[in-house]
Simulated scan of single mutants.
Amino acid sequence: MAGRWMDFGQYGAKGAPGAEALGTAIESMVTGIASPVDSERGLAARLRYLTATDAGYEAMDRAGIHVSPRTLMAWLAEERSPNRANLGRLDAAYWDLRRRNVAADLKRRLHNDGRGTRVEINPVNQSAVDRKHQRDLSSRSVNVRDLDLWDRAVDAWMDDDLEELDAVWDEIIEDLGSDYDAYSNVSSIGWAA
Protein backbone atom coordinates (compact mmCIF):
# COMPACT_ATOMS: atom_id res chain seq x y z
CA MET A 1 0.00 0.00 0.00
CA ALA A 2 1.27 3.46 -0.90
CA GLY A 3 1.66 6.04 1.82
CA ARG A 4 4.58 4.72 3.76
CA TRP A 5 5.41 8.22 4.97
CA MET A 6 3.99 7.36 8.36
CA ASP A 7 4.05 10.95 9.63
CA PHE A 8 3.33 12.71 6.35
CA GLY A 9 2.95 16.45 6.91
CA GLN A 10 4.70 16.38 10.28
CA TYR A 11 7.29 18.87 9.02
CA GLY A 12 4.89 20.91 6.87
CA ALA A 13 4.88 19.06 3.54
CA LYS A 14 1.63 19.47 1.63
CA GLY A 15 0.10 16.99 -0.75
CA ALA A 16 -2.42 14.21 -1.12
CA PRO A 17 -2.21 10.44 -1.32
CA GLY A 18 -1.48 9.33 -4.87
CA ALA A 19 -4.74 7.38 -4.97
CA GLU A 20 -6.73 10.57 -4.35
CA ALA A 21 -4.71 12.45 -6.96
CA LEU A 22 -5.37 9.64 -9.44
CA GLY A 23 -9.12 9.83 -8.78
CA THR A 24 -9.06 13.62 -9.12
CA ALA A 25 -7.19 13.40 -12.43
CA ILE A 26 -9.71 10.91 -13.82
CA GLU A 27 -12.62 13.04 -12.56
CA SER A 28 -11.18 16.09 -14.33
CA MET A 29 -11.62 14.27 -17.66
CA VAL A 30 -15.41 14.23 -17.20
CA THR A 31 -17.03 17.24 -18.79
CA GLY A 32 -20.66 18.15 -19.04
CA ILE A 33 -23.23 20.92 -18.93
CA ALA A 34 -21.64 24.12 -17.72
CA SER A 35 -24.87 25.99 -16.94
CA PRO A 36 -25.92 25.61 -13.29
CA VAL A 37 -28.88 23.37 -12.52
CA ASP A 38 -30.91 26.30 -11.16
CA SER A 39 -30.77 28.15 -14.51
CA GLU A 40 -33.44 27.47 -17.15
CA ARG A 41 -30.86 26.27 -19.65
CA GLY A 42 -29.03 24.06 -17.15
CA LEU A 43 -32.21 22.44 -15.84
CA ALA A 44 -33.62 21.84 -19.33
CA ALA A 45 -30.38 20.27 -20.55
CA ARG A 46 -30.13 17.97 -17.53
CA LEU A 47 -33.75 16.87 -17.86
CA ARG A 48 -33.31 16.12 -21.58
CA TYR A 49 -30.16 14.10 -20.85
CA LEU A 50 -31.75 12.17 -17.98
CA THR A 51 -34.99 11.37 -19.79
CA ALA A 52 -33.40 10.26 -23.07
CA THR A 53 -32.62 6.69 -21.91
CA ASP A 54 -33.62 4.12 -19.32
CA ALA A 55 -30.21 4.65 -17.72
CA GLY A 56 -31.21 8.26 -17.04
CA TYR A 57 -34.34 7.16 -15.19
CA GLU A 58 -32.21 4.72 -13.20
CA ALA A 59 -29.82 7.55 -12.31
CA MET A 60 -32.74 9.67 -11.12
CA ASP A 61 -33.96 6.76 -9.02
CA ARG A 62 -30.48 6.31 -7.48
CA ALA A 63 -30.42 10.04 -6.70
CA GLY A 64 -33.75 9.81 -4.87
CA ILE A 65 -35.99 11.55 -7.41
CA HIS A 66 -39.38 9.94 -6.97
CA VAL A 67 -41.97 12.13 -8.67
CA SER A 68 -45.05 11.26 -10.67
CA PRO A 69 -44.82 11.11 -14.47
CA ARG A 70 -47.13 14.12 -14.53
CA THR A 71 -44.70 16.18 -12.43
CA LEU A 72 -41.77 15.11 -14.59
CA MET A 73 -43.67 16.11 -17.74
CA ALA A 74 -44.44 19.51 -16.16
CA TRP A 75 -40.72 19.98 -15.48
CA LEU A 76 -39.87 19.05 -19.06
CA ALA A 77 -42.52 21.42 -20.42
CA GLU A 78 -41.17 24.16 -18.11
CA GLU A 79 -44.63 24.54 -16.56
CA ARG A 80 -43.27 23.83 -13.07
CA SER A 81 -39.84 23.95 -11.51
CA PRO A 82 -38.37 21.39 -9.14
CA ASN A 83 -37.88 22.45 -5.55
CA ARG A 84 -34.34 23.14 -4.31
CA ALA A 85 -33.90 19.57 -2.98
CA ASN A 86 -34.94 18.03 -6.31
CA LEU A 87 -32.67 20.44 -8.20
CA GLY A 88 -29.77 19.08 -6.18
CA ARG A 89 -30.89 15.52 -6.84
CA LEU A 90 -31.24 16.21 -10.57
CA ASP A 91 -27.72 17.59 -10.67
CA ALA A 92 -26.39 14.55 -8.78
CA ALA A 93 -28.27 12.21 -11.13
CA TYR A 94 -26.90 14.05 -14.17
CA TRP A 95 -23.27 13.77 -13.03
CA ASP A 96 -23.77 10.13 -11.98
CA LEU A 97 -25.09 9.26 -15.44
CA ARG A 98 -22.43 11.36 -17.12
CA ARG A 99 -19.66 9.50 -15.25
CA ARG A 100 -21.19 6.15 -16.18
CA ASN A 101 -21.55 7.13 -19.82
CA VAL A 102 -17.98 8.37 -20.23
CA ALA A 103 -16.22 5.52 -18.38
CA ALA A 104 -15.70 3.46 -21.54
CA ASP A 105 -14.42 6.52 -23.40
CA LEU A 106 -12.01 7.31 -20.56
CA LYS A 107 -10.56 3.80 -20.77
CA ARG A 108 -10.18 4.10 -24.53
CA ARG A 109 -8.44 7.48 -24.23
CA LEU A 110 -6.09 6.24 -21.50
CA HIS A 111 -5.31 3.05 -23.46
CA ASN A 112 -4.28 5.31 -26.36
CA ASP A 113 -4.41 2.53 -28.98
CA GLY A 114 -2.16 0.33 -26.85
CA ARG A 115 0.48 3.01 -26.29
CA GLY A 116 -0.75 3.88 -22.80
CA THR A 117 -0.60 7.34 -21.26
CA ARG A 118 2.36 9.27 -19.86
CA VAL A 119 1.59 10.36 -16.30
CA GLU A 120 3.33 13.47 -14.95
CA ILE A 121 3.84 13.21 -11.19
CA ASN A 122 4.49 16.35 -9.17
CA PRO A 123 6.03 15.69 -5.76
CA VAL A 124 4.71 17.01 -2.48
CA ASN A 125 5.10 20.72 -1.81
CA GLN A 126 7.98 21.11 0.65
CA SER A 127 8.14 24.92 0.67
CA ALA A 128 7.08 25.04 4.35
CA VAL A 129 9.55 22.31 5.39
CA ASP A 130 12.87 23.25 7.04
CA ARG A 131 15.80 22.53 4.71
CA LYS A 132 17.21 19.86 7.00
CA HIS A 133 13.98 17.83 6.72
CA GLN A 134 13.40 18.23 2.98
CA ARG A 135 13.72 15.30 0.61
CA ASP A 136 15.35 15.70 -2.78
CA LEU A 137 12.31 15.29 -5.04
CA SER A 138 11.58 16.38 -8.58
CA SER A 139 8.72 15.96 -11.00
CA ARG A 140 8.75 12.55 -12.61
CA SER A 141 6.89 10.91 -15.44
CA VAL A 142 6.03 7.35 -16.24
CA ASN A 143 4.26 5.86 -19.25
CA VAL A 144 1.51 3.54 -18.04
CA ARG A 145 1.09 0.98 -20.81
CA ASP A 146 -0.64 -1.72 -18.75
CA LEU A 147 -4.14 -1.48 -20.17
CA ASP A 148 -5.57 -3.58 -17.35
CA LEU A 149 -4.22 -0.99 -14.92
CA TRP A 150 -6.20 1.78 -16.64
CA ASP A 151 -9.34 -0.38 -16.64
CA ARG A 152 -8.89 -1.01 -12.92
CA ALA A 153 -8.29 2.69 -12.23
CA VAL A 154 -11.43 3.84 -14.06
CA ASP A 155 -13.53 1.07 -12.49
CA ALA A 156 -12.24 1.97 -9.00
CA TRP A 157 -12.96 5.65 -9.67
CA MET A 158 -16.49 4.74 -10.78
CA ASP A 159 -17.03 2.72 -7.59
CA ASP A 160 -15.36 5.33 -5.34
CA ASP A 161 -13.02 2.52 -4.27
CA LEU A 162 -10.06 4.36 -2.75
CA GLU A 163 -8.43 1.10 -1.67
CA GLU A 164 -8.29 -0.17 -5.27
CA LEU A 165 -7.12 3.25 -6.52
CA ASP A 166 -4.33 3.01 -3.94
CA ALA A 167 -3.34 -0.44 -5.24
CA VAL A 168 -3.31 0.91 -8.81
CA TRP A 169 -1.23 3.91 -7.72
CA ASP A 170 1.26 1.53 -6.06
CA GLU A 171 1.69 -0.30 -9.36
CA ILE A 172 2.14 2.98 -11.27
CA ILE A 173 4.87 4.32 -8.98
CA GLU A 174 6.74 1.01 -8.90
CA ASP A 175 8.03 1.99 -12.35
CA LEU A 176 9.91 4.88 -10.71
CA GLY A 177 12.50 2.48 -9.33
CA SER A 178 13.88 2.53 -5.81
CA ASP A 179 12.62 6.08 -5.21
CA TYR A 180 8.99 5.12 -5.79
CA ASP A 181 7.86 5.49 -2.17
CA ALA A 182 8.72 9.20 -2.21
CA TYR A 183 5.77 9.59 -4.60
CA SER A 184 3.13 7.82 -2.53
CA ASN A 185 1.96 11.36 -1.67
CA VAL A 186 2.00 14.01 -4.38
CA SER A 187 0.97 17.60 -4.96
CA SER A 188 -0.71 16.62 -8.24
CA ILE A 189 -0.63 14.32 -11.22
CA GLY A 190 -1.77 14.86 -14.77
CA TRP A 191 -1.72 13.61 -18.32
CA ALA A 192 -2.83 14.60 -21.79
CA ALA A 193 -5.37 12.02 -22.94
Rank of each mutant, 00 (worst) to 15 (best):
117 T>W: 11
156 A>E: 11
177 G>Y: 04
186 V>K: 00
166 D>S: 14
178 S>V: 06
123 P>R: 05
101 N>M: 11
70 R>E: 14
179 D>Y: 05
93 A>Q: 08
112 N>A: 14
155 D>T: 14
175 D>F: 04
94 Y>S: 11
128 A>N: 08
108 R>Y: 08
77 A>C: 13
114 G>F: 05
118 R>T: 11
180 Y>E: 13
135 R>D: 01
146 D>Q: 11
79 E>P: 02
146 D>P: 00
141 S>N: 10
106 L>V: 09
166 D>L: 09
117 T>N: 12
157 W>L: 12
170 D>P: 04
153 A>D: 06
164 E>V: 14
98 R>Y: 00
158 M>C: 15
148 D>L: 10
167 A>K: 11
137 L>P: 02
117 T>V: 12
104 A>C: 02
120 E>A: 13
164 E>R: 14
162 L>N: 13
93 A>E: 04
134 Q>A: 05
87 L>D: 08
97 L>T: 01
88 G>S: 08
144 V>F: 01
187 S>E: 04
111 H>S: 09
166 D>T: 10
177 G>R: 07
174 E>P: 00
111 H>I: 06
130 D>E: 05
87 L>E: 12
93 A>F: 04
109 R>Q: 07
152 R>Y: 03
73 M>Q: 15
134 Q>C: 06
106 L>N: 05
188 S>D: 02
162 L>K: 14
83 N>I: 11
139 S>D: 02
162 L>I: 14
177 G>F: 02
102 V>E: 13
145 R>D: 08
130 D>M: 04
88 G>N: 12
146 D>I: 01
164 E>F: 07
72 L>T: 11
167 A>P: 02
161 D>K: 15
101 N>D: 14
136 D>K: 08
152 R>N: 12
159 D>H: 15
108 R>M: 12
127 S>I: 08
71 T>S: 12
125 N>W: 01
109 R>S: 11
117 T>F: 08
80 R>L: 09
179 D>P: 01
144 V>E: 03
81 S>A: 15
131 R>H: 07
182 A>H: 03
140 R>F: 00
127 S>T: 05
146 D>K: 10
103 A>T: 13
91 D>V: 05
105 D>C: 11
188 S>T: 00
152 R>S: 14
114 G>D: 07
110 L>F: 05
172 I>Q: 04
153 A>F: 08
185 N>G: 00
186 V>Y: 00
178 S>H: 06
